[in-house]
Amino acid sequence: MIIKQLSIFLENRTGRIREIADLLARANINIRALTLADSSDFGIMRLIVDKLDMALKCLKDNNISTALTSVVAVEVPDNPGGLAEVMNIISASGIDIVYMYSLPEKMHNNAIMIMRFNNTEEAAETLKKQGLRILKQEQVLSL
């Protein structure tokens, strides 16, 4: 139920994202989803990739601060009110979202949101019981 995401520390400087993209390209790694968070002097790049172990090794070999983070991939109905419906369930369960972003692909004709919670494992269980469709790592990678 838990998806492993790559989180990368980046200084805010010209060309840094390109350098990361180049590294992953040379290692033949495909990026499934990507989001960037930034503060005034640094940023964090969050990635879902197809070959996780290889990507991790490639980044570490290049002295890039990288962490594996547990996130949850949740299906969200792709229609007006779809997100609101899912958020109502999460909110009613008393779960806080730290951040979220979407995957470009669809599953069962639903949109997919990647979510990070304060207590991700526990939250995933709870949400599953509440009837939300949570994707497995293989499912996401097979998209």
Binding site: F9, A37, T66, A67, T69, Y99
Partner: peptide, 8 residues
Amino acid sequence: FSDEIRKL
């Protein structure tokens, strides 16, 4: 390193 901006 933390994945969360606020922790950093």
